[in-house]
Amino acid sequence: MTAPERSRGGAGRVFFLIMLAAASTIFLYPFVWLVVASLKPRAYTFADPFVPWPDPFAPESYVAVWQAAPMLAWLVNTLVVGLAAAASVTLSSAFVAFGFAYFRFPGRNLIFASVLGTMMLPAAVTLVPTYLIWNAAGLTGTQVPLWAGNLFGSAFYIFLLRQFLLGVPRYVFEAARVDGASYLDLFWRIALPLARPALIIAFVFELKASWFDLMKPLIYLQDPMLYTLPRGLKAIVDQFYQGGDPKWEIVLAAGVITTLPLILIFFLGQRYFVRGIATTGHR
Score class of each variant (00 low, 15 high):
221 L>F: 04
67 Q>V: 05
55 D>R: 11
234 K>Y: 15
117 G>C: 12
140 T>N: 14
162 R>L: 10
136 A>C: 02
222 Q>C: 02
99 G>M: 07
249 E>T: 10
9 G>K: 11
253 A>Q: 08
175 A>P: 05
75 L>H: 08
21 A>Y: 00
273 F>L: 15
96 V>C: 12
262 L>E: 03
128 V>F: 12
198 A>V: 06
159 F>C: 04
138 G>Y: 05
176 A>T: 03
278 A>N: 13
277 I>Q: 06
251 V>A: 12
242 Q>F: 10
219 I>D: 10
81 V>Q: 04
210 S>N: 11
53 W>Q: 02
88 S>P: 04
229 L>A: 06
138 G>P: 12
133 I>A: 13
115 V>R: 01
58 A>S: 15
158 I>M: 10
68 A>P: 02
278 A>K: 08
259 T>P: 04
274 V>T: 13
31 F>G: 08
227 Y>C: 00
105 F>I: 01
226 L>Q: 14
224 P>M: 03
137 A>K: 02
161 L>K: 01
168 V>A: 09
79 L>S: 14
98 F>M: 10
231 R>E: 11
52 P>M: 03
133 I>M: 12
91 L>W: 09
192 L>K: 01
192 L>W: 02
280 T>L: 14
52 P>C: 10
7 S>L: 13
154 S>V: 02
108 R>W: 11
211 W>R: 00
217 P>F: 02
103 F>W: 14
216 K>G: 13
127 L>C: 02
105 F>K: 02
83 L>G: 08
75 L>V: 01
139 L>K: 03
212 F>A: 10
188 W>L: 14
122 P>E: 09
93 S>F: 06
229 L>D: 08
31 F>Q: 07
108 R>L: 09
99 G>N: 09
18 I>T: 12
47 A>P: 00
214 L>D: 01
87 A>F: 12
160 L>G: 08
89 V>A: 05
7 S>E: 13
104 R>F: 05
95 F>K: 03
87 A>D: 09
21 A>H: 00
254 A>P: 04
175 A>E: 13
3 A>N: 09
170 R>D: 14
193 P>T: 08
263 I>M: 14
164 F>E: 09
224 P>N: 11
13 R>K: 10
261 P>G: 10
104 R>C: 02
197 P>Q: 09
246 P>V: 07
220 Y>M: 06
41 P>F: 08
176 A>G: 10
178 V>S: 06
16 F>V: 10
10 G>Y: 02
252 L>S: 06
69 A>Y: 14
230 P>M: 07
35 V>W: 04
51 V>H: 12
44 Y>S: 15
235 A>W: 14
204 V>H: 00
153 G>C: 07
117 G>V: 07
283 R>E: 11
9 G>Q: 14
176 A>D: 06
242 Q>D: 13
135 N>T: 11
105 F>N: 01
251 V>R: 01
178 V>D: 11
153 G>D: 07
4 P>V: 06
141 G>V: 08
78 T>W: 08
211 W>M: 01
258 T>N: 14
256 V>H: 09
249 E>Y: 06
217 P>D: 11
233 L>I: 05
175 A>M: 03
251 V>S: 07
265 I>D: 01
30 P>A: 09
82 G>Y: 10
65 V>G: 03
153 G>N: 05
258 T>P: 01
51 V>K: 13
22 A>S: 13
235 A>C: 02
84 A>L: 15
49 P>S: 07
87 A>S: 15
229 L>I: 09
164 F>K: 04
251 V>L: 05
190 I>Q: 08
191 A>D: 09
